[in-house]
């Protein structure tokens, strides 16, 4: 499995994402946003966290207009798996590959800590190595992770089972206290209709080793690698 980590000016989670893929035995390369046309040589496209273009406009808004996003959209339309984490999720929403938007955290502050999410779907290419309803401890680190969408979109997301990760407490319940940013329905990650584009605010790539606090993120990358090895 060979993954492209697309780096925009201001991305800063690119190294971590590359390391995570390599940690589970995959291959990953950092692709600078000006390098057009190369994504077709990869099995998966990953958009890392960070502050693309400083996030001086809306988070991810400028990155979504970067020419390489045309390649990302084409890759996604062709069914290739695309994962956006944090700023990557914001960029996917701005690029309309995922519905809704990520607005400022309810408390109007950056929030960096471990939270818990529940795996709502373990039948996506990104989550097969998790148990259904498994509760994961994973770091978040964002100022704009408050997921918002109109009522119809939310109903569709829930109705179609496209919420993949939801903020929960230690017992696995999506309570108000366990919601770190005010996201509607405690949404932490969603997938597109076709099931190949996942966006999530938490950082599974930072939860790969016990010495860093948690290994709960690793299964996301093993899921992705094994599903791509199988399909190849």
């Amino acid at each position: 499995m060979k993954a492209a980590v697309v780096t925009f000016p201001g991305s800063n989670g690119d190294f971590d994402l590359r390391e995570a893929v390599q940690w589970v035995g995959g291959e990953a390369h950092i692709v600078w946003h000006r390098e057009r046309g190369g994504l077709k040589n990869y099995d998966a496209v990953l958009l890392p966290g960070g502050f693309s273009y400083g996030d001086y406009l809306r988070a991810g808004a400028i990155a979504s207009l970067s020419p390489i996003m045309e390649d990302v959209v084409a890759f996604a339309k062709a069914g290739g798996p695309v994962l956006g984490i944090c700023n990557g999720f914001q960029t996917l929403c701005e690029a309309r590959l995922l519905p809704g938007a990520l607005i400022r955290n309810e408390q109007l502050r950056f929030e960096g800590r471990d939270i818990r999410v529940r795996v709502e779907r373990n039948d996506t290419v990104f989550t097969t190595d998790y148990r259904q309803a498994q509760v994961l401890a994973i770091p978040i680190a964002h100022g704009e992770g408050n997921y918002e969408a109109d009522k119809a979109t939310l109903e569709r997301l829930e109705g179609d089972g496209r919420v993949v990760f939801r903020y929960v407490d230690a017992r696995g319940e999506p309570t108000e206290e366990s919601n770190p940013n005010g996201a509607w329905h405690n949404i932490a990650g969603i997938i597109n209709e076709a099931g190949n584009v996942l966006g999530m605010m938490p950082h599974p790539e930072r939860a790969m080793e016990q010495i860093l606090g948690s290994t709960d993120g690793a299964a996301l990358f093993t899921s992705l690698v094994s599903s791509l090895v199988e399909s190849a």
Partner: peptide, 14 residues
Amino acid sequence: VYRQYDTTIRTATA
């Protein structure tokens, strides 16, 4: 204070 800081980026914070 430190919840306003990113403490885990670069995946090296032990």
